Computed example of a mutant assay.
Amino acid sequence: MNDDEKMIMSERIRQERENSELSQEALAVKLNMKRTNVANYEAGRVTPPSNVLRELATIFGVDADYLLGLSDIRKRYSSDNHQEVPNWATKKDKRDFKQLLTDDQELMFDGVPLDESDKQRINDILTGLFWEAKRLNKETYGKKKNTKKDNSE
């Protein structure tokens, strides 16, 4: 791994930790390691071993290839990969998302109704796009503090 790849990976680990609203200490606890290990990963001084990289990807809900800088796609969506609602989503975000998915229009392509597996694939893609757009919007324009009440729904 060259220096540029290390810096991309370290920056993405830091960004994802911050997006997850975790301190270095809290992430270290989840990884069962010392905070200095996390700090070294984020500074690019140490490359995490593959088992730690897989665990980081799981904790952050992203693809390991994204953390490695091999892809700019944070998460790959497929019919067997259902995204959960992010912990930063507000009550309004959840309501907007529910409205997106409950549209009663029959899905068609070129006038032909889609089968259930195609509908699920589209649903998964829309889910990923929706939450990614919301996340970017909040990063760009600021995000409101969540309350415990917002996270309970």
Rank of each mutant, 00 (worst) to 15 (best):
N2L: 11
N2V: 12
D3R: 15
D4V: 15
E5R: 12
E5L: 14
M9Y: 00
S10G: 06
S10Q: 02
E11P: 00
I13C: 04
Q15F: 09
Q15D: 11
Q15E: 11
E18M: 11
S20C: 10
E21Y: 12
L22R: 04
E25W: 03
A26Y: 00
A26E: 13
A28C: 08
V29W: 00
K30M: 07
K30T: 02
L31A: 06
N32V: 14
R35Y: 04
R35G: 08
T36L: 10
N40C: 09
Y41T: 05
E42M: 03
A43H: 02
A43W: 02
T47Y: 05
T47K: 07
V52K: 10
L53W: 02
L53H: 05
R54L: 13
E55A: 11
E55M: 10
L56G: 04
A57C: 02
T58L: 06
T58F: 03
F60Q: 03
G61M: 00
G61L: 01
V62E: 03
V62L: 06
D63C: 11
D63Y: 06
A64Y: 07
D65C: 12
Y66A: 10
L67E: 02
L67I: 09
L67W: 01
L67A: 08
L68G: 07
L70V: 13
I73M: 03
K75L: 13
R76K: 12
Y77W: 05
Y77H: 14
N81R: 14
E84W: 09
P86F: 04
N87W: 08
N87G: 15
W88C: 11
T90V: 09
K91I: 07
K91E: 09
K91S: 10
D93E: 10
D93V: 07
D93N: 14
K94V: 15
K94S: 12
R95V: 15
R95D: 13
R95W: 08
D96A: 12
D96H: 11
D96V: 09
D96T: 10
F97W: 15
F97V: 11
K98F: 10
Q99M: 15
L101V: 11
D103W: 00
D103V: 03
D104A: 05
D104K: 09
E106W: 00
M108P: 01
D110R: 02
G111F: 03
L114M: 14
D115R: 05
D115F: 04
D115I: 06
D115A: 05
E116W: 01
E116V: 08
E116C: 05
D118L: 09
K119G: 01
K119T: 00
K119A: 01
Q120T: 10
Q120W: 01
R121F: 08
R121G: 05
I122D: 01
N123P: 00
E132D: 14
K134M: 14
K134F: 05
R135K: 15
E139C: 07
T140M: 13
K144H: 01
K144G: 07
K145F: 06
K145S: 13
T147C: 07
T147S: 15
K149H: 08
D150M: 05
N151L: 13
N151C: 08
N151S: 14
S152C: 06
E153M: 14
